[in-house]
């Protein structure tokens, strides 16, 4: 499939690398338009079910953050959970979706070096 190379040369493209943006804001209605043909995946990512696939087949859905108990936490703690994100780089657990097959999984990624350390189905990862 032909496609433009957003981000590579500064060529304007409205879908340019949208999938690398942080989509973890509270409203999942803001998920980027997932138009496969418009996107270019240069990185490879290992889906626990489908194996190594180009990143254009995947969607990133934010860092996995434990939800505080809504019945016991304070308003401030809840607001922090809903609105604040830790932007510092480091090793993070992230939600990823293999779009074509609908497989959700966890990727442990070093966001400083953009290295994927491992991927696994939620709940089946290392202890």
């Amino acid at each position: 499939m032909d496609s433009a190379y957003p981000g590579m040369c500064g060529a304007g493209n409205k879908y340019g690398f949208a999938f690398l943006c942080d989509l973890s804001c509270p409203s999942f209605a803001t998920f980027a338009s997932t138009n496969l043909s418009e996107r270019v995946g240069v990185k490879l990512l290992r889906c626990p079910i489908n194996g190594l696939r180009p990143v254009s087949e995947f969607q990133y859905a934010g860092e996995i953050r434990p939800m505080p108990d809504p019945d016991t936490c304070s308003d401030a703690e809840w607001a922090d959970y809903v609105f604040n994100r830790n932007g510092a780089t480091g090793i993070k657990k992230e939600w990823w979706l293999h779009i074509a097959s609908g497989i959700w999984f966890v990727a442990e990624r070093n966001t400083t070096t953009d290295e994927i350390l491992r991927t696994y189905i939620h709940g089946e990862g290392p202890a």
Binding site: D2, C9, A11, E38
Partner: peptide, 19 residues
Amino acid sequence: RPFFHPVPMSHLAGRGFHP
């Protein structure tokens, strides 16, 4: 950074494909 050598825009442009 890529590209280290100029590449014609026509090589990079897609087909204007809007499904």
